[in-house]
Computed example of a mutant assay.
Amino acid sequence: MDTKSLIIDIATTLFQQKGYLGVGLNEILKACNISKGSLYHHFPNGKEELLITCLHSLNDEITTDMKEIFQHYPSTQTATQAMIEKLVVQFDREGMITGYTFSSIVSEMGSLSEPVRTACALSFTKIQEIYSNKLVADGFSKETTNSIALMMTAAIEGGIMLCLTNKTSDPLKIISKGLPNLLKEF
């Protein structure tokens, strides 16, 4: 793995575990075993540029994983339930859900940094597009799919945050069971 990829990989994990403000530059340097000059060579604008790069990398990872799941299952309902089940298994195994939520970064940095807010917004938009495309394939109208995709994104993101704060996977299990009712309403 090249140095830049190593920095992104380690910093992403640290940001997910501790938040942007909870991770110091020295901690990133130590974890990566690199000098400050090496970090600034790859990220001339420093920690915020690194965070944005990490968000883009995380977004690519999440959307690739979601696209694979959504291509494998015949309907939005079964694909979403499979995706949620994967999150539940990860939470039950590890006690956390890494890589599937941007909410903590948005709440921490969204009002402080327009570039970070924009990177997070782009990630949510891409996730909603995956839902919308599958819903269109299921026969929903384009106007309806945007509303449903927004509600699905909000429900799952909120469910992830509730799992983390309550230390139980129950919120995602409830969302997975309630999803068929949401789709029937439209």
Rank of each mutant, 00 (worst) to 15 (best):
R93D: 10
S104W: 09
T101E: 05
L150V: 13
V136D: 04
D65G: 03
D92C: 04
I160C: 05
S176Q: 03
V136L: 15
F124V: 08
F70N: 00
V116M: 14
S123N: 02
I127L: 00
L135F: 12
R117L: 15
T98L: 09
P180N: 12
K126H: 10
E108F: 11
S57F: 14
T145F: 12
M152H: 00
A79D: 06
E61Y: 08
L179T: 05
G110S: 03
T165Y: 15
I97R: 03
A79M: 09
G110T: 07
A155I: 08
L87P: 01
L87M: 14
F70M: 11
L172I: 06
P115G: 13
D170L: 15
I97A: 04
F140L: 12
E129T: 02
Q128N: 12
V116F: 13
T76Y: 07
L112W: 04
R93P: 02
K126T: 12
N146K: 15
E108P: 03
H56E: 07
Q77N: 13
E108L: 06
C54E: 06
F102S: 09
V106N: 14
R117T: 02
Q90N: 08
T76S: 14
E48S: 09
K47M: 10
M96A: 09
M152W: 10
S141W: 06
L55Y: 09
A155N: 14
K86S: 04
S57L: 07
K67R: 15
S103D: 11
L87A: 06
F43P: 01
A121F: 13
Q77Y: 00
Y131R: 05
N166I: 04
S75F: 04
V89S: 05
M151A: 15
E49C: 07
T63Q: 08
D170I: 15
Q71I: 00
L50R: 04
L179K: 07
T168D: 06
S169Q: 11
I160F: 10
Q81Y: 08
T153G: 07
N133T: 03
V89I: 11
K177H: 06
D138K: 08
D65C: 06
K67F: 03
M83W: 14
S123E: 07
T144G: 02
A154D: 10
G95M: 07
P44R: 08
D138S: 06
G139W: 09
F102D: 08
Q71M: 04
M152K: 02
S176M: 01
Q128S: 14
V116K: 12
M96D: 02
N59F: 00
S132P: 11
F70Q: 02
E68M: 09
I156R: 11
N59S: 14
Q128M: 15
S57P: 01
Q71A: 09
Y73A: 00
T125H: 10
G139Q: 05
M161T: 15
A82V: 01
G99M: 02
L162V: 11
S111T: 15
I105D: 01
E61T: 13
T63Y: 06
K134R: 12
V136C: 02
K142T: 09
L150W: 10
K134N: 06
M109Q: 06
I130Y: 07
A155E: 09
S111I: 12
P44E: 05
S103H: 14
A137N: 11
A121K: 14
